[in-house]
Amino acid sequence: MLVLNLIEALTNALDVSMAADSSIIVYGEDVGFEGGVFRATKGLQAKYGVDRCFDSILAESSIVGSGIGMAINGLKPVVEIQFSGFVFPAINQIVTHAARMRNRSRGLYTVPMVIRMPYGGGVRALEHHSESLEAIFAHTAGLKVVIPSTPYDAKGLMMAAINDPDPVIFMEPKRIYRAFKQEVPEGIYEIPIGKAKIVKPGDDLTVVAWGSMLRDVQKAVEILEKEGHSIELIDLRTISPIDRETIITSVQKTGRFAVVHEAARSFGPGAELISIVNEGAFLHLEAPPTRITSVDTIVPLPKGEHHYVPSVEGIVAELRAVLTF
């Protein structure tokens, strides 16, 4: 067993995968020589050579667009978008091509590639460095969207993403890149894409979260459980394809539902989750399903960020309202 933080687990996942499969190519801005601005690809160029881990040109559309061609021609590219807020120049390639090539060619050409991107706030960064864009990708047919919340999951989900036959948007919670360490197996293992994880079982309320918010929700749950409530906490792990079954089964048991996310509120992932709950567990509900989210403003610069993202205290207050409805 290794003891790694989340970003070390990702580096290890890439390392172990590249050692096992010479078709895996890793690149992006500053990814090669430096190992990426967060060091996710540290040491890979030295170990695997400049053909397999390299600095791209500074052009996001090229990073994704060239990856599509590589994937069609037998490689498995794992590319990095330096921050998710910089992905917009590549959106055309992601949405109009990566997501559609299989359908457009009726399965003749496919795009097994991973598009990594650190997402979310909490690192006191400049504008465009703090976005949570999972809803945009999850709304696009043909993409899978994965967000790990622990080092163990990060490695297992990354290996599943690399071996997935379709394009995977792999969003990394950069706020917790180095927040804590965990035991991580040395070798190859996969965590299936499309399966949520019940972090802890409970009877009174189902709470769904993912990525960096999961840690804050765990703290909120601990506070509420000391008050005598029993809460089932689910880590969604995959935003798309979403695990309806785990959520519906849980809410049918608990009768109450809340989703917590860092993404903006309106048309966000919480809206989809509440629809799932309404479709699958409406007659079991004892309180209105609730979303606890960031607000619908532009993501503020660091001095205003605390107004934007749900706090532990805010999560506690809103969950308590659902529990006592």
């Binding site: 190519i25 559309s61 994704v64 667009g65 060239s66 061609g69 590589m70 490689l75 090539m101 060619s105």
Partner: peptide
């Protein structure tokens, strides 16, 4: 031949990836 690509010039990026892989 890759399938028909309607978004203008986007297919040139794919050509680079095909070439890199080759």
């Amino acid at each position: 031949i890759l399938p028909v690509s309607v978004p203008i010039a986007s297919q040139l990026q794919h050509a680079t990836g095909l070439a890199y892989a080759a």
